[in-house]
């Protein structure tokens, strides 16, 4: 029972991060129908920029409390990522809006390779260790151990997601975004400036990515120039699991994927009598994904897609 609760807690923390990244994928997909492969790289660059600022601050010797340093790092990473997301859309995707969808996909892959290698040239090939800025005092909770960092990650993620839901469902911009995702042409006729909406989508998604980047690097204590790729894949998987294009789906999918992964890692050994070890946690995640899609082909919360009209 203790292991179960502990893995559940770890899973929720991981899931909160996945959900933040998955939101970026799902928003872009909902509007453009494009898998933005470069999104994982935006997460990585967010982590790297935040880390660089944090290291500079710590090296300068200014006595600031840890959380303030982390906040300053984040404050530097968010605008950088917003700018990056805006630039990616402008340079790489906008010219291809009328092109076949696979052309845009290949461009996204190309952008991902470019960003990864630019990051490698700037920050080098080595693993950067992330200093722990938040107190990691463990709290005992019904047999499971939770650190302040974990609580903070979950709370911040929840806050951001609530903010995003408010933005999308209660503001003018949100209404424009929903209209554009339903039908760009008609939205344009109704006076929505589609280009602005698409740019804003990328900017908001990238801001979430920056936060997720700092979270994931602080959680694992390490940052590396290829960290974005696998994280991006997992987050995209989460978005699909929940039903791509659906905000609630991305959140649910992210949480589920995180929980499934950590429970899988914790129990797969005992379930299979020690035959399969915890290396198989990714197999677990992907198998669940395949099973879910076999029975609900458009994800958990996705609308039933009728035959293409």
């Amino acid at each position: 029972m203790d292991i179960f609760l502990q893995q559940l807690v770890n899973g929720v923390v991981l899931g909160a991060i996945y959900a933040l990244v998955a939101l970026g994928y799902t928003m872009v997909y909902g509007i453009l129908g494009l898998i933005n492969f470069a999104h994982g790289e935006v997460v990585m660059i967010g982590a790297m920029v935040a880390l660089t600022v944090i290291q500079l601050l710590l090296a300068s010797g200014v006595p600031l409390p840890g959380p303030v340093v982390a906040a300053i790092g984040l404050a530097a990473a968010i605008p950088t990522c917003m700018l990056l997301g805006f630039a990616i859309e402008r340079v790489a995707y906008r010219p291809l809006r009328e092109a076949p969808r696979l052309a845009a996909l290949i461009t996204a892959i190309g952008m991902s390779i470019v960003l990864q290698n630019v990051a490698m040239i700037i920050w080098g090939r080595r693993y950067h260790s992330v200093p722990s800025l938040l107190p990691v005092t463990p709290h005992q909770f019904a047999g499971a151990t939770i650190t302040d960092l974990q609580i903070f990650i979950v709370l911040l993620a929840a806050l951001i997601m609530a903010g995003l839901l408010y933005l999308v469902h209660r503001t003018r911009l949100g209404r424009a975004m929903r209209a554009t995702s339903q039908n760009p042409e008609v939205a344009g006729l109704m006076g929505v400036n589609i280009n602005t909406v698409i740019s804003m989508t990328f900017i908001i998604g990238s801001a979430l990515a920056a936060v997720a980047g700092l979270m994931v690097s602080a959680y694992y204590g390490v940052a590396h120039y290829v960290m974005g790729f696998m994280l991006g894949l997992k987050a995209f998987t989460a978005a699909v699991l929940g039903g791509i294009g659906n905000l609630g789906g991305a959140m649910l999918g992210g949480l589920l994927l995180g929980v499934i992964e950590s429970l899988g890692a914790g129990y797969i050994g005992t379930l299979t009598g020690g035959f399969l070890g915890s290396h198989y946690q990714d197999v677990f995640a992907f198998t669940v994904l395949i099973l879910v899609l076999v029975f609900r082909p458009s994800g958990l919360l996705g609308e039933r897609v009728t035959e293409r009209s």
Binding site: P95, G110, M111
Partner: peptide, 9 residues
């Protein structure tokens, strides 16, 4: 990567 992006553009 740049070549991929450019060719597709």
């Amino acid at each position: 990567g740049l070549a991929l992006v450019l060719v597709m553009q």
